[in-house]
Nucleic acid binder design. Structure first.
Lengths: 215, 215
DNA sequence: TGTACATCAGTGAACGCGCGTTCACTGATGTAC
DNA sequence: TGTACATCAGTGAACGCGCGTTCACTGATGTAC
């Protein structure tokens, strides 16, 4: 009899194998990028034959979709945890950067080159909004006495995306700038575009965000 | 007899065919991304058999390397042209954004997800520095009376990358911030991360750069 | 100008490869009486 | 508790495919005397 609310042994086993498949999939992505992800290669690593994977994932695409969802989920959880332990914007940035640096290809799976034609599953935008919600909370806590810019005015009339969040335009603006400035530095760092110039991205990010708070 | 300094008919023909191959390669990349680029498919479009391509490119990798180099070259030329016709930082940003939007996958070939293990040819960093040089020129023209930040101090001791350029640390800083802020907004826009929120990236970029000049 | 030769673009057949995916099957694990 | 049956994880063979790349070749274009 299955423990209601719990897991039968078979379910537990399935979950374990699924997790192991994903683990090796991430390893492969970290090593050679998503494009090189091969079901047969994963199967070999897991120690079973290729077709056996189809017990766990309907197709290569479904596996990748699951990985993308997990990446979003992990990022959202990380950000929320940091916020709950009282991180300010700079602390948040540091946490996100560490998350990204621990597995650059996972970051790029979310924020990297889009594959023309491929559309991420709908629920990822929901998870993505979780991140934005945290940003809005933290940005709302910052005192705001700054001159309104043309983009602020633009935001006053285009704020449906912050659905239900009662933030002022300047708060939305700050959250957006935080996001784009951090991503700007971080993605260039991860892609190796600072190689050769001996720049400390952490300092640059801190500076970019301090300027954001001061402006 | 070959016209010295000119091109023999054969050379001219070779150059034409090479150009046509590249054209179709770009089309394919725009349609399905680099990962999907196939020599046989290109050959079919050009109207010749697969092996014939090897008269023009030694391998798939060499073709891609050439495309990457061309992308860098095109960006550098675009930026330099804009600077020569007197564009300021905001104008420069607009030009770069248009360049990127005209072929997003070309932008991502330079600034997108890196393929682990792959290293761009050395000369691309040289071309990349051409872009930085223009940025430094334009940034140097901006009057600079602003408080020094920790990152400015960091730059005073880490400025070898701006090899030979006599700019002050604040100028280097401005050029870097221009680059990272623009890339932050632009790459998110091109990857479709603003879809749904009806944001005008042009306004956001202008705002980000005005803040940069005011700070 | 005409002929002999070298260069070189392009072809078609073939190679080996690894891919995602299907199918019919075996054998172990869990369920019901 | 023991037996009969259903569920389901995993296998091995096979499918068709398109890939990058090589090779020996044909035929046209250019070069030299």
């Amino acid at each position: 009899m299955t423990d209601p609310g719990g897991q039968s042994p078979r379910e537990r086993y399935r979950a374990q194998v699924r997790a192991e498949i994903k683990r090796h999939a991430w390893e492969q992505i970290a090593t050679a990028g998503v494009a090189a992800l091969s079901l047969n290669a994963i199967a070999k690593q897991v120690g079973m034959s290729g077709p056996a994977l189809y017990r766990y994932f309907a197709s290569r695409d479904e596996l990748i979709t699951t990985l993308i969802r997990d990446a979003y989920r992990s990022l959202a959880d990380t950000v929320r945890a940091a916020s709950h332990s009282g991180a300010d914007l700079i602390g948040l940035a540091r946490v996100i950067r560490e998350w990204a640096r621990s597995d650059p290809q996972r970051y790029f799976l979310i924020y990297g080159t889009p594959v023309p034609g491929y559309h991420a599953p709908d629920d990822t935008t929901k998870i993505s909004f979780e991140v934005m919600t945290v940003l809005l909370e933290v940005c709302g806590a910052v005192s705001a006495d700054k001159p309104a810019t043309p983009f602020d005015a633009h935001l006053e009339t285009h704020r449906e995306w912050a659905f239900g969040h009662p933030a002022e335009a300047t708060t939305l603006h700050r959250a957006l700038s935080f996001w784009t400035r951090l991503h700007g530095v971080l993605s260039l760092e991860l892609a190796g575009h600072f190689t050769g110039m001996e720049i400390d991205p952490d300092l640059l990010i801190a500076d970019e965000l301090n300027a954001l708070l001061a402006q």
